[in-house]
């Protein structure tokens, strides 16, 4: 999720990562690759029947009354550079009532 001013200046950015995370059960380092992994120690993946809800909250800089919000959902395979876009949703948020 990124938030920008009307001029395009980034004023907020947060990420959430959804995936099972495994170690070799001999140390505390997460492993990537079946030949090194032994068991999951944490699982933040998106499971059936279980919605993932998040709240992102940030303060607007002084004098800024609007923010352009972009939420990107994408899938990474093998490495973070190999992305498969899933959804992009944009919203404009204003503190001023029309």
């Amino acid at each position: 999720m990124t938030a920008k001013t009307a001029e395009g200046k980034e004023i907020g950015k947060e990420e959430r990562h959804y995936h099972p995370q495994a170690t070799n059960c001999r140390d505390t380092k997460e492993k990537y690759g079946a030949q090194w992994k032994v068991a999951n120690i944490r699982d933040t993946s998106i499971q059936p029947h279980q919605a993932k809800k998040e709240t992102f909250e940030f303060d607007l800089p002084e004098g800024v009354r609007t923010a352009d919000i972009t939420v990107n959902l994408f899938y990474e395979a093998v490495n973070p550079d190999n992305k498969y876009p899933i959804h992009t949703i944009t919203r404009e948020v204003s503190l001023d009532k029309e």
Binding site: K53, F56, V71
Partner: peptide
Amino acid sequence: YTPKVIVTTKITSNAGHRIPD
């Protein structure tokens, strides 16, 4: 007063298994 923006997201899945896997 502190000007704030709150963004709430909800991801739902109709897959029969975890994603990713």
